[in-house]
């Protein structure tokens, strides 16, 4: 075996396979990193103000007993609604990966409806808060509360647009077990929106209602 000639042979390397993760999916993961930083900054703003106030949330204007948003009933219902939409979304994506189109349509439509229900619940909460005088100008807690839940709501709305687009594309038969990157990417986004809500609910609702 002539080692000298081997050195001059072109090195045969196994041709790398196409990356296991598709570019569309990878793009969504990378994009969500910046979304994490966006909501992360809003949470950082919230905790900065939490730490720099003697009483948090600041004492509401005189006489308003149930001034800030309570945990029950709408927020807790909304939480259940949004988390169940995560399950319907996940199993819908699972269904299209197995070419079960009927099940995909049922579960995906359920996801859209649950997302809509969440948005209407939030809208109801906002309107009733405004009507009892809790608005963005009251104090720093109110500002942060509305901006954070408002931007989350806007992201849910964006997610609903994406979900509807996927539904439209699926109706045209563009997805099957081989081609469903769009479905998977939107599912990922929808899960992200859910996770953000988990922290919002924990900090803005439960944390404010039950903190020592």
């Amino acid at each position: 075996m002539a080692v000298a000639t081997m050195q001059h042979q072109p090195v045969h390397e196994p041709v790398p396979e196409y990356p296991a993760i598709k570019p569309g999916m990878m793009g969504m993961y990378i994009f969500l990193a910046s979304e994490v930083m966006f909501f992360g900054s809003l949470f950082a703003v919230y905790f900065y103000m939490f730490g720099s106030h003697a009483t948090w949330p600041p004492t509401p204007p005189a006489g308003a007993k149930e001034f800030y948003v309570a945990v029950a009933p709408i927020p807790i219902i909304n939480t259940v609604v949004l988390f169940s939409s995560a399950f319907t979304c996940h199993f819908a994506a699972d269904a299209i990966a197995r070419d079960n189109r009927r099940r995909f349509f049922i579960l995906w439509t359920a996801t859209v409806l649950l997302g809509l229900a969440f948005e209407f619940g939030q809208l109801y909460e906002f309107i009733s808060a405004f009507s009892r005088g809790l608005n963005l100008q009251v104090n720093q807690f109110a500002s942060a509360f509305f901006i954070m839940t408002g931007f989350h709501g806007a992201h849910v709305l964006g997610g609903l647009v994406l979900l509807t687009l996927i539904l439209y594309r699926a109706a045209k038969g563009q997805f099957n077990s081989q081609h469903h990157v769009g479905v998977a990417a939107v599912t990922l986004y929808w899960h992200f929106v859910d996770v953000v809500w988990f922290f919002l609910f924990l900090i803005l609702y439960v944390g404010v209602a039950y903190h020592p």
């Binding site: 990378i30 990193a33 910046s34 979304e35 930083m37 966006f38 992360g40 900054s41 809003l42 703003v45 963005l136 100008q137 104090n139 720093q140 500002s143 942060a144 509305f146 901006i147 931007f151």
Partner: peptide, 25 residues
């Protein structure tokens, strides 16, 4: 840029909210 672009956008959004929506950031 991926990591710090969003905090910049957040800062600018909060400045805008202060100016146009009357928030207290």
């Amino acid at each position: 840029l991926l990591i710090v672009g969003a905090p910049l956008a957040a800062a600018m959004i909060l400045v805008e909210c202060d100016r146009q929506l009357g928030t207290q950031f």
